[in-house]
Design a protein around this nucleic acid. Sequence first.
DNA 1: AACGTGAATTGACCTCGATCAAACAATTCT
DNA 2: AGAATTGTTTGATCGAGGTCAATTCACGTT
Lengths: 226, 226
Amino acid sequence: MKTLRLNSNDKAVLLGSRFFEKLSAAASDAILEGAVVTNHEEHDILFQQDEPVDSVFCVLSGLVRVYRLGKDGREADIAVFTKGELFGENAMFLGNRATANAQAIGSSTIARLDSRNLRKLAEQYPDIAQALMELLCRHGQMAEDCLAEDRLLTAPQRVASYILGHCPDGSTTFSFRLPFQKNVLAGKLGLAPEALSRAFSALRRSGVTVKGRMIEIHDRQALERF
Amino acid sequence: MKTLRLNSNDKAVLLGSRFFEKLSAAASDAILEGAVVTNHEEHDILFQQDEPVDSVFCVLSGLVRVYRLGKDGREADIAVFTKGELFGENAMFLGNRATANAQAIGSSTIARLDSRNLRKLAEQYPDIAQALMELLCRHGQMAEDCLAEDRLLTAPQRVASYILGHCPDGSTTFSFRLPFQKNVLAGKLGLAPEALSRAFSALRRSGVTVKGRMIEIHDRQALERF
DNA sequence: AACGTGAATTGACCTCGATCAAACAATTCT
DNA sequence: AGAATTGTTTGATCGAGGTCAATTCACGTT
């Protein structure tokens, strides 16, 4: 795997990401110092459970799926990350061992930030420590949200919740394009693809139109009630 | 609700907790400055989803259950905390709003650490920031572990996994006492109490003996294979 | 535009765990 | 000790969602 330096576009994506938004230029530069970029094909493995990892990652383009393996080989998605999102930060605090697997979905470019460096910088710059805490908190929240939804909602309700999460507050009718294959959405929601399909067709009765990756909502309230 | 100052025993519990273990005395004292203690009866609510929270909490005695509410009133446990564990730290990073509910299980004493103070101290003491990051990471991991187990394991497998988590590595046969009612364990594992009961009786065939709260394992390998 | 491949849907079936009801066990209270 | 309350187990039933197989559809390629 060939590693490259950041080009100016890569840098723009990183600096525009949520993690960097409140950081000073000095702090950001210090973090990006020594960052490298790798390109990946669909299904490439970025890291694996229990193996050493000495970077924090950021998606520059494409998608990354983070998942755990069951001993029977089945996979459970923990999260899916898109452009501008950092991931893999947990290993930093757990002896540089990954606690999950990460895999590119479709061809993707990934930045790697040295975690030793980042840890050191977090001691010098309180803002960096703060940004890291917010990152950890967001990711913790994501996992808790998932857990609660898995336990409280049925498949169609989870899908409705996902759709509503993409709907601007005011509008009662709107549409958007899924950012990835239904395949991937199913994994993210903890469903078999067939179950996602059936969930969509259950929602059709509540004014949801699905055509390819395009989702149309005609009655927000109906979805919320579901 | 009467709030008290920390007594020396309370202080000992706090300082012995995982969060404080690597902190200097100066840092610890600064955090505990202004900490208060409250006593709670079974079922007392400590905080509620979406309500303002300006403390980080620590269990001094008893148990606390953190859970989310579904709109139909059903509850999903996110975590259960015991003596010496901090919780409720997420609100610190999310505009001081709780993202879940917390409730005492049995009568409990709880310490409250002022979160404004803690945030300020995290800027001064890198060790405190580090301890907070580790706390956030652990809690994020807990949620991810739960999520993965929910998605990958059946009820008896989850129970087996819970039991094995209490089994020292070497031993093939050992026993321990559940730290809470089966009731609570069921919630923590995302099961109805009946399902937990049935899971235990399924494990009986693999050398697990359950008598009241006492659990005995006679064949570690059998459990691992389950 | 036709083709071909992989994705998505649909149907049939089956398993797991939730729910309800009732029996039973273990606490706590008087 | 006996009563009352609460926790736990067991049985029976039901529904949600997983799995497998067979189409159908969408999309990129030629």
